[in-house]
Amino acid sequence: MLSKRIIACLDVRDGKVVKGTNFEGLRDAGDPAELAARYNRDGIDEIVILDVTATLEARQARAHTIHAVAREIFLPLCVGGGIRTEADAAAAIEAGADKVSLNTAALHDPSLITRLAARYGSQAVIVAIDAKRQNGRFEVYARSGTDHTTRDAVEWAREATGRGAGEILLTSIDRDGTRSGFDCELTAAVSNSVPIPVIASGGAGTFEHFSEVFTAGQADAALAASIFHFNEKSVSELKYHLRSRDIAVRL
């Protein structure tokens, strides 16, 4: 049976994890490679590096971060944030990423999805959608939630799929950082509209939130950052919780 995936997100700026951590025993709590190694030992299924810096120097630093994380883990690795061109994607993949996540660039130039899918395969192209409840629907925002696009999230997910996306990384802007639970309604609306896997993101606070998004939310995977960084609870405890709810996980 296909397992539901638990994905850890490392929000990186200038080579450091910016949301911070309080793991004991790490020489440098903000080091992405050490954090990735820790998650790997704890049974994480996949790692996403979200690097929001976009200067040239930062892009070189990003390649260094990807390389350092990839050296630590033999797991799927996705890189997002500031992937604007084929060259950006190529640099990330050369450095060791298996997948790239496109957000703003895909909205501005949807053909980028198709070009990257043709070059690397659809499995390497994730389209990230940041959505907010507005006007009775879920509307898409670009540029880390700052640009309102008036596009409907379900409709954009369908288009992205048609253009060659292999997965959708769906973040609820309303829930992000609140720890009040994933937006299951949003997740189910998108998941039931596309034939490709949907990764739910935004709002993880408790183990119950994960079981909810895998059942009511119809998510294929769930992503979280700060719950893993700050909580005493671990990825493996989360998975035992999910298994106790008859949700298939990799233990």
Partner: peptide, 20 residues
């Protein structure tokens, strides 16, 4: 995976993730 002779079903394609 979803094509003939197997028909469609509740299974998303591509098959992405950890399976046994």
């Amino acid at each position: 995976l979803a094509g003939p002779p197997h028909g469609t079903g509740p299974f998303k394609v591509p098959h992405v993730g950890w399976n046994s």
